[in-house]
């Protein structure tokens, strides 16, 4: 229902900017599902959303607001592409695994920085992760524009192509749908198991519920925050590496299209539940691939999607708003609580 509200508000914005909302949304729908190869494209876009949504959601469970998924995605892609083009003559399976692991490592390390700053100094992760996003963009821009990772044989600034052995296999010929989707689907039960069936998951949830209670119970809050941030970044990092290995096969200086920010909406929509990430990610995959077609077809900016997102989050985060508008008898599930008891801005 919040999604419907999102479209209504976005429709208003489109109408105000002087375009026809019905026509725009029809184009959006066409681009997401109907056109030839639309569905595979939607699934291609769904893949990073699953990884990133899982990562951001994991952070939420510990009370961490990881806005840095975008930067971690960049660094993951950077590590992945480096392994992808610098090693040769490896069997596909080994090469792909190495590159993906490098991506996880990159995202992990990049996210560990705000993790340490939070755990050690109480620096709020909202500021530090956003600042690190800008640092990541600048770093990637340097390495790929005028730094050591430029492909000298190309006129456009980009890294060399990755070794063919490092490419993720295509699932359906004639499309860009690649095996990364299967990995993302596999990641869902893994994250669920980690959160709901292991000690680490229990610690994460306890710290998210109440750091004071966790500390009283003998859980090291600092280590848990650090580990959660790292894992969250690792998931963002694998999303980046997966995108390089599966879709682009090289890395340009401006790489992501805001996947990391959309992922926050994905995680909120799914209420950080790993299973619910799947439909939420699919919805955003459809919005993403559909909006590209819409922009091409109707001159309405694909930015309209962020209006949909913002409205969706607003309605999810404010259950009272819902009650008020739809006169629900029973209040929906409680709002997401993120501001933990300590380290306020």
């Amino acid at each position: 229902m919040s999604v419907v509200a999102g479209f209504v508000v976005a429709g208003l914005a489109v109408a105000l900017s002087g375009s026809d909302p019905w026509q725009s949304f029809y184009a959006l729908f066409q681009g997401a599902f109907i056109n030839p190869r639309a569905l595979p494209e939607t699934l291609v876009a769904t893949t990073p959303y699953i990884f990133l949504g899982l990562g951001v959601g994991l952070g939420f469970r510990a009370g961490l607001f990881n806005i840095g998924a975008e930067g971690q995605f960049y660094i993951g892609a950077l590590f992945g592409v480096f392994i992808g083009y610098s090693l040769h003559e490896l069997p596909t399976i080994v090469h792909v695994l190495l590159a993906l692991l490098a991506g996880i490592l990159g995202g992990f390390l990049w996210a560990a920085v705000p993790g340490i700053l939070k755990a050690r100094f109480g620096a709020h992760e909202v500021i530090t992760t956003i600042m690190l996003n800008y640092v990541a963009f600048a770093l990637v821009n340097f390495l790929i524009n005028n730094g050591p990772m430029v492909d000298k044989s190309s006129s456009a600034p980009r890294t060399p192509y990755i070794d063919p052995a490092a490419q993720l296999p295509i699932l359906a010929s004639g499309t860009r749908l690649h095996a990364g989707l299967l990995l993302a689907l596999l990641a869902i039960p893994i994250v669920w198991f980690l959160l709901d069936r292991t000690t680490i998951g229990f610690r994460i949830r306890t710290v998210g519920f109440s750091p004071t209670a966790a500390r009283a119970a003998g859980i090291s809050v600092a280590w848990t925050l650090l580990a959660t941030m790292g894992l969250s970044g690792g998931l963002a990092g694998i999303a980046g590496a997966d995108e390089v290995l599966g879709v682009s096969h090289y890395m340009p200086p401006s790489f992501s299209t805001g996947y990391g920010f959309d992922a926050i909406a994905v995680a909120l929509l799914a209420r950080s539940n790993p299973w619910a990430i799947l439909p939420a990610a699919f919805l955003f995959g459809a919005l993403s691939s559909g909006s590209r077609f819409m922009q091409f077809q109707t001159q309405v900016s694909a930015d309209v999607i962020s209006v949909v997102q913002a409205t969706v989050i607003m309605f999810i985060a404010a259950p009272v708003l819902f009650q008020w508008i739809f006169r629900l008898r029973r209040a929906p599930a409680p709002a997401i609580k993120i501001a933990s008891e300590e380290g306020v801005l």
């Binding site: 914005a13 489109v14 105000l16 900017s17 002087g18 375009s19 607001f65 806005i67 909202v126 920010f261 926050i264 909406a265 909120l268 001159q299 309405v300 900016s301 694909a302 930015d303 309209v304 999607i305 962020s306 209006v307 949909v308 997102q309 913002a310 409205t311 989050i313 607003m314 985060a317 404010a318 009272v320 708003l321 709002a335 997401i336 609580k337 993120i338 501001a339 801005l345």
Partner: peptide, 30 residues
């Protein structure tokens, strides 16, 4: 959002930030 509707203040702020990006983007192109 944050005072009357009790939305988490950070979530509310975040929503406004992406809303601003989206709206300025749409109208800029418009």
């Amino acid at each position: 959002l944050s005072i009357s509707l009790m939305v988490d203040q950070i979530v509310s702020g975040f929503v406004i930030n992406i809303l601003a990006l989206g709206i300025t983007g749409v109208f800029f192109k418009g």
